[in-house]
Amino acid sequence: MAPKNKNPNGENVVPEVQQKKTQALILKSSDGEEFSISKSAAGLSVAIKNMMEDDCAGGVIPLPLVDGGTLARVITYLNKHAEDGASDEDKRKFDEEFLSGMEVDVLCDVALAGNYLDIRGLFHDVCQRIVNGMKNKSVEWVRKTFRIESDFTAEEEEQIKKEYAWAWEGVDSDAD
């Protein structure tokens, strides 16, 4: 009979499960950096989970749309959320601290990765965080931050600004 270990609550843990949890997977970023992550943490990403189930991973999963810096952040998030014994309150506090230090361009990269890897909780939190940082920002700021090209003529843009003039109250000027 296989030996049994005890978790902090004193309950027996079947080693098979433990083994599965500690099994590692390699994620490879767009710039060639390799990261080791437990299967249970990686499984929080629906996209990686599907790749594992399809067994197309072969131990190393290439993620050509995520750079190393961003992937490291995403892995920190996944590890915390897969941690044994982390309460919802712990995770909420972690999320708050994890995101609060990030600049908007970093948040955008994490949002792209969260969407691509299909990590809904992370993606939602990051979207909300980006929106909080968008308060009172000008149209120019939004175009610059999200790299959007305007396809309006100057007249069309002026017409829209006139039509929704009330919505501009309290918004920074384009020069800010």
């Binding site: 955008c108 969407n115 979207c127 149209v139 939004v142 305007s150 396809d151 829209i160 919505a167």
Partner: peptide, 28 residues
């Protein structure tokens, strides 16, 4: 980022007033 992808989600957390204000960003 595109309006069919991440920006769609990000913008969906904005109050309607901001959406009207940012409607001149581009056609999408």
């Amino acid at each position: 980022m595109t309006f069919t992808g991440e920006l769609f989600d990000i913008f969906s957390w904005l109050p309607a007033k901001s959406l009207y204000g940012l409607s001149s960003v581009c056609k999408s």
